[in-house]
Amino acid sequence: MALQPASTEIAAQAASIIDGMKDLEGPLLPILHGIQEEFGFVPQEVLPVIASKLNLSRAEVYGVVSFYHDYRKHPTGRHVLKLCQAESCQSMGSDAVAARLKQALGIDFHQTTTDGAVTLEPVYCLGLCACSPAALLDGEVIGRIDAEKVDEIIAEVRS
């Protein structure tokens, strides 16, 4: 995949973030978090900028972005719904919850609704096993999800 040069504005914003953190010990992860916070995802075109400023190869930077699932390569919806798919949640019905959410939203995991309202992502353990099945909606914990809560979540992300 050929990476396009960053636009001047994106490059300037990325450079500012990088310059503010490049002196940290192990700066790549904090820089990537900062860039994702700024843009909502890690634009592929900033990877060469990061690589150059940190004296890394583009492959090294891309490898880190692609390895960690929390780094997004595309913009997300206005809401991000993360549904736990770990064993405890599965044993308590997260597969049925996932199926209901996917059907109601018309998307699969790692997709965003056509209206840009919600992105659905799987996660593997939120540490809420006692409240299985569990999810995070825009960083807010939701436990013991059942059909009624699925309908409430859908109403919230559609409003």
Rank of each mutant, 00 (worst) to 15 (best):
F67V: 00
C84A: 04
S88D: 11
G93Y: 03
V118A: 09
A117G: 00
K102A: 08
L81P: 03
F41L: 07
L56I: 07
T113W: 06
Q44A: 15
P75R: 12
T76Y: 00
A104W: 00
P48T: 10
P122W: 07
V97K: 01
F41P: 02
S57Q: 08
H110D: 15
A51T: 08
L101A: 05
E87D: 02
A99F: 03
L56Y: 13
H69C: 00
T119L: 07
L120Y: 06
F41V: 02
E87L: 13
H74C: 00
D70N: 12
F67I: 01
T76H: 03
K53M: 14
R72H: 15
V49W: 06
E45N: 15
L54Y: 11
I107W: 07
G116C: 07
T112L: 11
V64E: 14
C89S: 07
P48D: 14
I107R: 06
T119C: 08
H79D: 06
P48A: 13
L105F: 05
Q103T: 13
G77Y: 01
Q85T: 12
V118N: 08
M92Y: 08
K102D: 04
G93R: 01
L120Q: 03
R72F: 14
A51C: 13
P122E: 10
Q90H: 07
F41Y: 15
H110A: 10
P48L: 13
E87W: 01
Y68Q: 10
L105Q: 03
P75Q: 12
G106M: 09
F41H: 14
D115Y: 11
K53F: 07
C89R: 01
L81H: 05
S66Q: 12
Y71N: 07
G106N: 03
I50E: 04
A117V: 04
H79V: 05
R100S: 13
S91P: 00
L105G: 01
Q90C: 04
S88K: 10
S94Q: 00
A51L: 13
A51R: 10
V64T: 14
F67A: 15
D115C: 09
V64K: 09
D108A: 12
E60P: 02
E87H: 03
P75L: 07
Y62P: 01
E60T: 12
R100D: 12
N55E: 15
Q44K: 11
T113I: 03
S57F: 04
V42Y: 08
V118W: 06
A59K: 09
A104E: 13
Q103R: 13
A99H: 09
D95E: 11
C89T: 04
V65Y: 02
R58H: 05
F109R: 06
L105I: 02
V61S: 02
H69M: 07
S94I: 03
S57P: 02
P48Q: 12
L54K: 08
Y62R: 05
H110I: 00
P43Q: 10
H74T: 12
P43W: 02
E45G: 02
A86H: 14
A98W: 02
V80P: 06
R100Q: 14
L83P: 01
A96T: 10
Q44T: 12
L120I: 11
T114D: 15
P122A: 13
T119H: 05
P122G: 09
H110K: 15
T76Q: 12
Q85N: 01
L83E: 00
H69G: 06
C84I: 07
V46F: 10
L101H: 02
A104F: 00
A51V: 11
R58V: 15
F41A: 05
